[in-house]
């Protein structure tokens, strides 16, 4: 698993990259009440806002962690945003991307570096 400074995790599954937010981020955000997901098939560039989430506290944007195509979104979150709090690195994933070049993930933080990053 790789991590971004925006508290996203990325996991390679077959030829796709699954993206979600970390347990730390989910905890900080508090209970999620709303998730707006991008259209499948959308081409996105790194740092483009692709997901809107609303917690009991505030709205936040989830950015595309890398360039690529959104090929699948987790529709279960629409009716049950709490999945993100309950299982942020499992059932609470947001979307799957197809990357031109997965080597862009090489420079990202591994778990040890991320844990250090969040102190």
């Amino acid at each position: 698993m790789k991590y971004t400074e925006e508290h996203e995790w990325l996991r390679i599954e077959d030829d796709l990259v699954v993206v979600g937010i970390t347990e730390h981020a989910a905890e900080q955000l508090g209970d999620l009440v709303f998730v707006e997901l991008p259209d499948e098939g959308r081409m996105v560039v790194k740092d483009e806002e692709v997901v809107v989430i609303e917690s009991v506290k505030a709205a936040s944007d989830i950015m595309a962690p890398v360039d690529g195509e959104i090929v699948e979104v987790n529709g279960a979150l629409i009716d049950n945003p709490a999945l993100v709090n309950e299982d942020p690195t499992g059932d609470g994933w947001f979307f799957k991307m197809k990357l031109e070049d997965v080597s862009v993930m090489d420079d990202m933080m591994d778990e040890e570096a991320y844990l250090k990053f969040i102190g």
């Binding site: 009440v33 709303f34 707006e36 609303e54 505030a58 709205a59 629409i78």
Partner: peptide
């Protein structure tokens, strides 16, 4: 007048 407002869908309007 102050009123209640029910937004469509699930997104809070803050």
């Amino acid at each position: 007048t102050r009123v209640g407002l029910l937004p469509e869908g699930r997104a809070p309007v803050r």
